[in-house]
Design a protein around this nucleic acid. Structure first.
Lengths: 342, 342
DNA sequence: GCCGTTCGTCGAAGCGCTTCGACGCTGACA
DNA sequence: TGTCAGCGTCGAAGCGCTTCGACGAACGGC
């Protein structure tokens, strides 16, 4: 193993000089620096992470807590996770993967042991039991999602309320009067997942303002459950012509079932999905959809933890940030003017 | 911050005694140990990870390299990743998330800096450029997947060749003579992803032995591309009655399209999927499928790195292990006896 | 009753890095 | 010409933990 001292000897300087040359925290003469850099490559020096963490009181690692619920849409989550690791690397940070099955204790553990300098929480519930831990231990953190009380925290999320409102507006503009909102399974709502509740609330408020009649139906997402959900909707409200779907798994079945029931999309029924663009693109017909960029969410979260880590290290009180990213509605082939009433 | 020394003072012993009491590496009197444990909880002591890594020459972290290719099935990958972190925790290890966009250099980096004690590689290609790095730097590693030359490595994977053979046998047993194998996009085969090639080879060998006629068609998995693929299959070989699908994304479209073309599954066409059980369950009709357990793969990989880390630390040469997990065929509703020839 | 063990504990020496204070130099300014 | 402010470098003191060797006490065997 090559150490700092080896590099120093090889370059004919003291080890503190090498340290400063590599960190840039003090000015070093150009000649000296190049000599050191050369020694580094010649010897193949890699600074020891443990020693660096110990002496510098920074592990250069952030923890990412990923959800385990079968309800979350895994590719979406994964896209955020990847964006987080990539963004973290740009700050010289690595990402520790934490699952939720250790509970809040896991978060405390990695922070208390100094394994991680900060934490990013995904799939934040309104009353999330990890949040009190963050506050009590003053752990630099960023949440992806919104707890009920975000004071003292940095949060980023899509503006799902607006997303819901956009759906209502779009269908109302097209002349639809009876809408069905097909959501996640009821467990998600019971768990108070913010994204589900906020979308629904945003939709509901705008729907009422626009004089829409609507039904909200949770749905497991399997073919059978979607069939049941749709059958009940059509039985309760046969005049329904607009569908809002916020459940990635239910989209495919819904389209198949509508077709099977003799309804053509978009001539007889309009479907608008709250889902990522690539997913909207791959169905047939391509779906009008509402979404925000996942990647940016991950990046923003990283910036937020970094800011909090820096502030905490400097002894300042970190600034709270709350960022709701505006969603965009993309009109594709699955929505059209409501059919004339018969 | 509470340190070992604080605990020692509080318990009235030396800090080395505390260290030994907590690690169990030397016998400590019961009375002393309980006193120490009490001090630990009273003070809320958490050992500092950096110091531990530095002094103990072990970071207690393994790196998990996840693929970025859009072709891999994300939920499957994530299931393995979760299984890995859970299994690692049981060994007192945490998991560092690495993406492939740093290339082989990322693997070298985490190992050389001592950030990670070992590495788990997912989505291993036959000629994987990370493998030479593992060998050159003697990095304790476990591969999920199979490179062309596994000497000096520990590998675990599903036995995809057998999976392919099971598919051929099942359809042959049911009397099908003309089979179409719908695979991943051609990029996957070009990339020499082992799982794709091995399944196909296993299928091909058994198909020939059983006198089956078959076509292999790569497929992107979108609705449109699946439609094109199916149309071409039926044009080239209209007498095709059996379908093997190894492409999670193509399953839904394929079923819809078969139905649309007037073929009932399983009466007119049998479909067998190489995919995880939950996915097979959620289609309609439920799919006969072949798969092995993802979770076990993650666990096995963790055991393998742990073994190699231990061996390396003890100065021994780690033992190579190659584990191919036998797949299982579950008959559900999508396969039946071939229709009588007309 | 003496020796050799084993058990339980201590002290000290690092692990490889960061960082603080100090110090010699050069150059600008009065 | 003397002074003072950087600049560039060095030495040393830790960071909090593990681990090695040592040592006293208790104990069994002859």
């Amino acid at each position: 193993m090559v150490t700092l001292a080896d590099v120093a000897r090889h370059a004919g300087v003291s080890s503190s000089t090498v340290s400063y040359a590599l960190s840039g925290k003090r000015p070093i003469a150009d000649r000296t620096r190049t000599r050191i850099e050369q020694a580094v490559t010649e010897l193949g020096y890699h600074p020891n992470a443990g020693a660096r963490a110990l002496a510098g009181r920074r592990s250069h690692v952030i923890a990412l807590v990923v959800p385990l619920h079968p309800e979350v849409h895994v590719p979406t989550m994964m896209e955020i996770a990847i964006a987080v690791t990539v963004a973290a690397r740009e700050h010289g940070y690595d990402v520790l993967l934490l699952t939720n099955n250790e509970g809040p204790e896991g978060v405390r553990r990695v922070a208390a042991t100094g394994l991680a300098d900060g934490v990013i929480l995904m799939d934040v519930r309104l009353d999330d039991d990890r949040v009190p831990v963050l506050r009590a231990e003053q752990i630099p953190a960023a949440l992806i999602g919104l707890p009920d009380d975000p004071t003292g925290l940095s949060c980023a999320d899509h503006d799902f309320a607006t997303a819901g409102a956009l759906c209502a507006d779009h269908l109302a503009d097209l002349g639809h009067r009876d809408i069905a909102f097909i959501g996640y399974s009821s467990g998600v709502y019971r768990r108070h997942a913010g994204y589900a509740e906020r979308t629904l609330n945003g939709f509901r408020a705008r729907a009422e303002r626009r004089d829409l009649r609507f039904l909200h139906r949770p749905c497991e997402g399997s073919y059978e459950s979607t069939a049941g959900t749709l059958a009940r909707i059509l039985a309760d409200r046969p005049e329904t012509t607009g569908f809002v779907v916020q459940n990635e798994a239910a989209i495919g079945p819904l389209l198949t079932l509508l077709r099977a029931s003799g309804r053509t999309v978009p001539e007889d029924a309009s479907v608008i999905a709250v889902c990522p663009d690539p997913m909207a693109e791959q169905h047939s017909p391509r779906l009008t959809s509402v979404t925000g960029p996942q990647k940016d969410l991950g990046q923003v979260a990283v910036e937020q933890v970094m800011a909090r880590i820096a502030a905490t290290a400097a002894g300042d009180r970190p600034e709270d940030r709350l960022l709701l990213m505006p969603p965009e509605l993309v009109v594709r082939e699955s929505t059209a003017a409501a059919p004339r009433r018969t």
